[in-house]
């Protein structure tokens, strides 16, 4: 059940910042939320470098705060974590609160 990245949601810099703060606080990261660039990868070898356990933690906070569950068809399918922007857009599309 792959959720394709939605192009419908407009860019929302305020939501991007909110999500950056949520990630930093959920994972106790040592970077400031402002240092997370909108286009830089969140997951994998570049950018923020989150791994699968981080993604689980972030997914949990997303589900509580925005009222929907993330879905993936495999552990390697983290497209929505390709950048802060794509994550914020995914949240904007699927949020129920």
């Amino acid at each position: 059940m792959t959720q394709l990245e939605s192009s419908a949601a407009p860019l929302d810099p305020a939501l991007e910042r909110e999500v950056a703060e949520m990630i930093v606080s959920a994972l106790n990261l040592e970077v400031s939320p402002e240092a997370i660039a909108s286009e830089a990868p969140l997951f994998g070898d570049e950018g923020l470098g989150l791994d699968s356990i981080d993604i689980l933690e972030v997914a949990l906070v997303i589900s509580k705060r925005y009222g929907f569950q993330l879905k993936a068809d495999s552990e390697d399918n983290f497209h929505i974590f390709s950048s802060l922007r794509s994550l914020a857009q995914h949240i904007a599309t699927h949020r129920t609160k």
């Binding site: 059940m1 699968s52 997914a59 589900s63 569950q69 993330l70 879905k71 993936a72 552990e75």
Partner: peptide, 11 residues
């Protein structure tokens, strides 16, 4: 399947 997120596990 190897469900990953909690929602995937439940589903």
């Amino acid at each position: 399947q190897r469900p990953f997120y909690p929602g995937d596990i439940a589903e």
